[in-house]
């Protein structure tokens, strides 16, 4: 049985609405209008212990809602969720003692307490055995390079330092599953790399199952073996990232430097994407126009200085995928 099992999950929110302006405000006093927003409908997937899954989708797609249901905070309207054989919301206390969660946009540490005191308090709240706690804390402090921030109140930390402290805080009780909701949001490059490194090590060395949501495709590229794309509350794709890339954008790019003036037309099936002096960026489908054939044709007809093959950027793949599924932000 998989460690995380989600079947036909659905969740709706009721949102109060009012018309703009004074009249709308007055009318709202008498009659409240509510709109039902379907955050999730019919989401199913499963995850084995030790997997590292990336969860992507536009804002409002239902990623965070899924994480909040999986972590026992929200009650789903319909569907089955089992984590380690438990129903998270009903069996909350037993469930949450085995998971670690980081919400990138909020802090779980106490704003006015030094980091180390926040850790102590969490160890008490999770009832971690003292010797075990000390060993764990020291290991995490070393791994996340937190030595210099331990005595500082959380409010004085930089975002990168804070996020590393947050991740340590989520791991003090040695959870088997780690949910990370946008852990790299707003971080600079070194901090992002540090976060990715820690996540990778936890997954490989300790076998922690990781489910992370992100908008940074480099997180996905660096970490996730498997990607679920979610949009409009539904699973749009569930596959290794490379498969996703191949399915969505088979398109290849070829950048060609010509010795003389660049030609106007190359051949059928090849599109000129951009032109800069004697350099052209060409787009083509390798299934219809095999790359060697195109290169041979170019070399035969023109004097070519340099050629390199490219792939569309990962952001482009995802944007294209969202477009194809009409999954842009609601």
């Amino acid at each position: 049985m998989p460690q995380i099992l989600v079947e036909d999950l659905a969740k709706t929110y009721r949102v109060a609405e009012r018309d703009p302006g004074l009249l709308g405000a007055v009318r709202g006093l008498v009659h409240r209008r509510h709109r039902t927003v379907e955050a999730l409908r019919d989401v199913s997937f499963s995850l084995e212990a030790g997997e590292l899954l990336g969860f992507i989708g536009p804002n409002g797609a239902g990623k965070s809602t899924t994480i909040k249901i999986l972590s026992g905070i929200l009650k789903p309207d319909a569907g089955l969720v089992l984590v380690n054989g438990r129903v998270p919301f009903t069996d909350r206390i037993a469930h949450v003692s085995k998971i670690g969660v980081v919400f990138g946009q909020r802090t779980q540490l106490w704003w006015d307490l030094p980091v180390s005191e926040g850790f102590d308090l969490l160890a008490d709240i999770y009832r971690v055995e003292p010797a075990r706690y000390r060993a764990n804390r020291d290991e995490l402090v070393a791994l996340l390079r937190l030595e210099r921030v331990l005595d500082r109140p959380v409010r004085q930390l930089s975002l990168g330092q804070r996020m590393r402290a947050e991740i340590a805080a989520a791991l003090l009780h040695e959870p088997d599953i780690l949910f990370l909701d946008e852990p790299t949001i707003g971080l600079d490059a070194p901090s992002k790399l540090a976060v990715r490194e820690v996540v990778r090590r936890l997954n490989r060395e300790r076998g922690v199952t990781v489910l992370l949501t992100t908008h940074d495709m480099h997180d996905i590229e660096a970490l996730a073996q498997r990607v679920i794309v979610i949009g409009h509350g539904q699973v749009l794709a569930d596959s290794p990232f490379e498969t996703l890339r191949a399915n969505v954008l088979a398109e290849r790019r070829l950048v060609v430097d010509f010795a003389h003036e660049a030609p106007e037309i190359i051949m059928a099936g090849v599109e000129i994407r951009s032109r800069q002096g004697q350099t052209l960026e060409l787009a083509f489908d390798p299934a219809r126009t095999p790359t060697p054939n195109l290169i041979a044709a170019l070399a035969a007809a023109h004097e070519v200085v340099d050629i390199h093959v490219g792939e569309p950027a990962i952001e482009e793949v995802i944007a294209r995928f969202y477009d194809l599924h009409g999954a842009g932000e609601a």
Partner: peptide, 13 residues
């Protein structure tokens, strides 16, 4: 602010 989410993540009543 929604940080109530973290209170619900603690294995306590």
């Amino acid at each position: 602010t929604g940080s109530v989410a973290y209170d619900r993540l603690r294995p306590v009543d």
